[in-house]
Simulated assay, not measured.
Amino acid sequence: MNYPSDEQLAEMMRQLTQARIENFLGQHIGTWRWWVLVILLIAPWFIWYKLVDKKRILEVTLFGVIIMVFTITLDEMGFVLSLWSYPVEVIPILSRLTSIDYTMLPIIFMLVYQYFSTWKRFLGALVVLSTVFSFVAEPIVVYFGFYVLLKWLYWYSFPIYIIMGSLARWIVKRLIDIERKG
């Protein structure tokens, strides 16, 4: 079998990146969708700063960064596997919905983490959050053309949000226990 070389793959990636940049500059930058994504990337951080418990800011931020790592990783995997795509991006060299991965999901998860301190309450809030994200927010984002489902269904996202939040909380709580014992 004739496999593409590393150099051929790099050239294909360069051509794809160039095409994405040209598409972005010709069709998306400055459109209302692009401006919505820019606002959603920046503005929620000001709200978060007002709401975050400053006494727990490191803990809450660590939780948010873990959520961000999960969302970016999962989003990249889904994009590369052609499970979904994003017609409009804030930055054309990133193949993900940066406003959601870097801002909206981490901030909302951080606020849930902050306000629901016991596992029972946190898991209940995660179920509600996962329901809203999977069956309300995602369809709205699809409807307005920010997100295109290729080989993905909304209900696939539901357990992922719950697992992601639970795992992030477990990691943070474990690190806090290690620090206290240390």
Rank of each mutant, 00 (worst) to 15 (best):
Asn2Gly: 05
Ser5Leu: 05
Ser5Lys: 01
Ser5Arg: 02
Asp6Trp: 07
Leu9Thr: 01
Ala10Pro: 01
Leu16Met: 05
Thr17Asn: 04
Ala19Val: 00
Ile21Asp: 03
Ile21Thr: 09
Glu22Cys: 00
Glu22Lys: 03
Asn23Gly: 02
Phe24Ala: 02
Leu25Thr: 08
Leu25Asp: 03
Gly26Ala: 10
Ile29Asn: 02
Thr31Asn: 07
Arg33Pro: 12
Val36Gln: 03
Leu37Glu: 10
Val38Leu: 10
Val38Asn: 00
Val38Pro: 04
Leu41Gln: 13
Leu41Phe: 15
Trp45His: 11
Trp45Met: 00
Phe46His: 01
Phe46Val: 02
Ile47Ala: 11
Trp48Leu: 14
Tyr49Ser: 08
Tyr49Arg: 07
Leu51Glu: 05
Lys54Trp: 01
Lys54Met: 04
Ile57Gly: 00
Glu59Asp: 01
Val60Tyr: 02
Val60Ile: 14
Thr61Phe: 01
Thr61Asn: 01
Phe63Gly: 01
Gly64Lys: 03
Gly64Cys: 00
Met68His: 04
Val69Asp: 03
Thr71Asp: 09
Ile72Glu: 06
Thr73Ala: 07
Leu74Tyr: 12
Phe79Arg: 01
Leu81Cys: 09
Leu81Glu: 12
Leu81Asn: 14
Leu83Ala: 11
Leu83Ser: 08
Tyr86Phe: 12
Pro87Cys: 11
Val88Cys: 08
Val90Met: 10
Pro92Ile: 06
Leu94Gln: 13
Leu97Ala: 09
Ser99Arg: 06
Ile100His: 01
Asp101Trp: 01
Tyr102Ala: 11
Tyr102Val: 13
Tyr102Ser: 11
Tyr102Trp: 12
Leu105Gln: 04
Ile108Asp: 02
Phe109Cys: 13
Leu111His: 07
Phe116Asp: 06
Ser117Ala: 09
Ser117Gln: 15
Ser117Thr: 14
Ser117Phe: 05
Thr118Met: 10
Phe122Trp: 13
Phe122Pro: 13
Phe122Tyr: 15
Ala125Ser: 15
Ser130Thr: 04
Val132Asn: 01
Val132Tyr: 05
Phe133Cys: 06
Val136Tyr: 10
Ala137Pro: 00
Ile140Pro: 03
Val141Cys: 02
Val141Tyr: 10
Val142Ala: 09
Tyr143Arg: 14
Gly145Leu: 04
Gly145Cys: 06
Val148Cys: 03
Leu149Pro: 00
Leu150Met: 07
Leu150Glu: 11
Lys151Ile: 11
Lys151Thr: 15
Trp152Leu: 06
Tyr154Pro: 07
Trp155Lys: 04
Ser157Phe: 05
Ser157Pro: 07
Ser157His: 06
Ser157Val: 05
Ser157Asp: 10
Pro159Val: 03
Ile160Ser: 14
Ile160Leu: 14
Tyr161His: 11
Tyr161Leu: 12
Ile162Met: 09
Ile163Glu: 05
Met164Gln: 15
Gly165Phe: 12
Leu167His: 05
Trp170Ala: 14
Lys173Val: 06
Lys173Phe: 00
Leu175Gln: 09
Ile178Thr: 13
Ile178His: 09
Glu179Gln: 08
Arg180Met: 09
Lys181Val: 09
Lys181Leu: 14
Gly182Ile: 05
Gly182His: 12
Gly182Phe: 11
